[in-house]
Nucleic acid binder design. Structure first.
Lengths: 204, 204
DNA sequence: TCTTTTTTGGAACAATCATTCCACAAATGT
DNA sequence: ACATTTGTGGAATGATTGTTCCAAAAAAGA
């Protein structure tokens, strides 16, 4: 046996599971059932790994939840932000973002809504660290929307009747609302009405 | 002892607490901590009655939650509906509804949000009975808003550019959104931006 | 193959969960 | 005051909670 510093140079047994795959399963479970609604047993059953592997790899239930939340965020938020930053026809892109949210909501038979919105409602007021992740997420999306709206205003496809920041906050608010509506099982007509009126605000 | 049918005509010991007062305390607790976040011990501590009285009077935790939800609904929703129905200047009333929601959110140091929104997110997908209460609530508020908007459109204070039902759904969606934002501790500037843009949609 | 290190499954843990139970207190017509 | 009924406090219930522990399995350089 030989070592560099405190690290052993033995390469021993490696994990039988892919950490990222397991995290994806945790996202699905927490997203569907919430933090308090998901038990350690639920996690063991759904993740397909034993308690010891679970706690050894992720610490505890709360840390696993936080990692799952960040995993979700890195997919959902970054996807949305990329769409806006790479957009050439920003008015079409904003509409696309809303249509996507509606499509996802209608397709989701478990009515999971949005993991970030669910977390905001269940945990944000009681957990500072989680609240700060939520707020970082909100700021990132708001900034991206703001940038997109400015672009649209300069291109002349969006009205300048209100400032871009206000529009961005307004759009974000409606996305939150849609995700709550999804949880109550709203139908296409309701979603379409909301999206149509929301988007009409931006028009010149 | 004498009886009519199976009912005894003895008038015996009456409850030491007011059922409505206790229900109000249950509303506050569930509103703040959610269903799964509130334990039976929490309830005993906060309601000031013993386990036996609690279970004897309200059945079980879920039934107590449902009664609390209906209690909240009967205050919050009916208040809002009355405001609209008795309004003479409907544009001012709609603005007042939004300003009230903002004021409440900023004043609430526990960031409880809205009990109905919280319930929608936590329980609606997993409990049919609760989902139907939520939907009834949504329909009642949407109907009242729709009526108000029609009134405003006839009075010429609201635009007819979209139909009243679509506007009602849109307004409801923004109220939901505000309640989620409240949970993340949003500040006055954010709320004011959202409300200003939302209300601008209705203007002629 | 031996040694060393890490992962694994599952038993075991104390704490907490929602709920039930019971002996006693309180109230009221008689 | 008595009989009868119902409400009350708190102990007790078994199930489930999140977490820890341990013996055994697996992996890989020596």
């Amino acid at each position: 046996m030989w070592a560099i510093g405190s690290q052993s140079c033995f390469m021993t047994r490696s994990k039988l599971f892919n950490e990222n795959d397991v995290l994806d399963k945790a996202v699905q479970l927490f997203w569907c059932k919430g933090y308090h609604g998901t038990s350690a047993q639920d996690l063991v059953d759904a993740l397909g790994i034993s308690r010891s592997s679970l706690y050894d790899t992720f610490g505890d239930k709360r840390q696993l939840y936080i990692k799952a939340l960040q995993q979700y965020r890195s997919v959902a938020a970054k996807g949305l932000i990329n769409m806006i930053e790479e957009s050439t026809q920003i008015d079409k892109t904003v509409e696309q973002i809303f249509r996507m949210a509606v499509k996802e909501s209608l397709a989701d038979k478990l009515t999971k809504g949005c993991f970030v919105v669910n977390t905001t409602v269940e945990l944000a007021p009681h957990d500072k660290e989680i609240a700060s992740i939520i707020n970082e997420n909100m700021n990132d999306i708001e900034d991206a929307l703001c940038l997109g709206i400015k672009k649209g205003q300069e291109q002349g496809v969006f009205t300048k009747h209100q400032n871009a920041r206000a529009f961005a906050r307004f759009l974000f608010n409606n996305i939150s609302g849609l995700r709550v509506a999804a949880k109550s099982g709203a139908d296409k007509k309701v979603f379409d009405d909301i999206v149509r009126v929301t988007l009409s605000v931006l028009k010149k």
